[in-house]
Nucleic acid binder design. Structure first.
Lengths: 142, 142
DNA sequence: CTTAATTTAATTGTGTTCAATTTAATTATA
DNA sequence: TATAATTAAATTGAACACAATTAAATTAAG
């Protein structure tokens, strides 16, 4: 039979379901984020800021596993929308600090119920969710 | 305490580790795929073709959870590289069929060891891999 | 102190990803 | 049969994602 190529079948790979499921879950967020005038990437950047209030682009990149090529336009767009301020650190002018505005901070009120709403569409039990969460963080080495 | 916002912490979300891990795993493929002159998206399209030999853009999209906006340039690029031929079905001119060339078919020889090499970098036991695989397919509803 | 190395963002170019629209072909309906 | 509805790809425009390069600021080394 052709089982010499079974290793190349889509359903036997890890990459395919991982990548497809990730895009699927991001799509579940979209209608909720539209109401906040945020894209998904802007949303996860805001989550870091809701937790910290302020951080540098470098720290944002470390938290989100994204580089400045991605983050520079994301942060500029958040500034355009009035959710953050951008300014250079006075101690080290290389560092760009990103800080929540009042508008950006209060946006978390409208975001608070999104994870639960999305989670309910996921068809995973809480136990399955916890297992998946753990395995993903193991892949991320965190 | 601030636990009213715990639900908005990055590490308590499903979306973040899922999306980040997916990109991380795609990055693991890149050096191997560079040798085949394939991007990741081109690679998963080729996997469908290695299995079927020929299929329509629509079928490719259903298998990969991608639409024609993504696949049209991917398939054109594969044609440029000489790995596939594109032609309209004679029975239904709406349908674009994509077919492996000899060059595209023989590329699978060089691809066969990639999944194992990438898997070895993943730091998951076979059991963990199987569990993850099952949970991801559950999210995908397949 | 001066030069070299490093660090931080920004920029550039390629390749997705997706929503929305368009075009052409086919099928269903009046 | 004409017309309407549907289907399959392609196109368009916006937003990532990332490698590679650049520019400016800081730090380290001679």
């Amino acid at each position: 039979m052709g089982e010499k190529n079974d290793c190349l079948k889509l359903e036997n790979q890890m990459c395919f379901p991982l990548y497809a499921a990730a895009r699927e879950v991001v799509k579940l967020y979209r209608p909720h984020l539209d109401k906040l005038n945020l894209t998904y990437t802007q949303y996860i950047a805001m989550m870091v800021l809701w937790e910290r209030g302020q951080c540098s682009v470098k720290e944002l990149g470390e938290k989100l596993c994204l580089d400045s090529g991605t983050l520079t336009p994301v942060v500029k767009s958040l500034e355009q929308k009035g959710f953050v301020r951008r300014f250079r650190s006075s101690e080290d002018e290389r560092i760009l600090l990103v800080e929540l505005t009042d508008s950006g901070r209060s946006l978390s009120d409208s975001a608070r119920d999104i994870p639960e709403r999305v989670g309910a569409c996921l068809n995973l039990t809480p136990e399955e969710g916890a297992v998946l969460h753990g395995l993903l963080y193991k892949i991320l080495g965190r």
